[in-house]
Simulated scan of single mutants.
Amino acid sequence: MVNKCCVPHCRGNYVGGEKVSVFRFPDDELLKMKWTRSIHRTNFTPTTYSRVCIKHFMSEDVLWETSMFDESTGKLITVKLPAPRLREGAVPSVFPERPSCTSVNARLEPEEKRRKKEMEQLEKCIRDSIEERRLYEEARSFKTLGECFEKLQKFVSFGDFSFI
Rank of each mutant, 00 (worst) to 15 (best):
S157D: 15
T48R: 07
I39G: 05
K34A: 12
H9L: 08
F142W: 15
S21D: 15
V20A: 07
K113V: 00
L135D: 14
E132T: 09
A106Q: 02
V62G: 10
S50G: 08
S67K: 13
N43R: 12
K117N: 09
E97F: 00
G89Q: 10
G146V: 09
V62N: 07
G17A: 08
Y49N: 14
M119A: 11
E123L: 11
G12T: 02
S38V: 00
Y136V: 00
C6E: 07
F57K: 00
T42I: 10
L63Q: 14
I39M: 14
R51H: 13
S21W: 12
R98W: 11
M33H: 12
S21F: 14
R85I: 02
E29F: 01
E111M: 05
P96C: 07
D27M: 03
Y49A: 14
R115Y: 13
P26L: 11
F158T: 12
V15S: 08
F69G: 01
T48C: 02
P26T: 10
S141Q: 12
S100N: 13
E111G: 02
F163H: 04
S59K: 08
V52K: 01
F155W: 00
T47F: 09
C125T: 01
V79D: 04
F163Q: 04
E65V: 00
S157V: 06
S72A: 10
K19F: 09
I126D: 02
E109P: 00
N13A: 09
F23H: 13
V79C: 06
E88W: 03
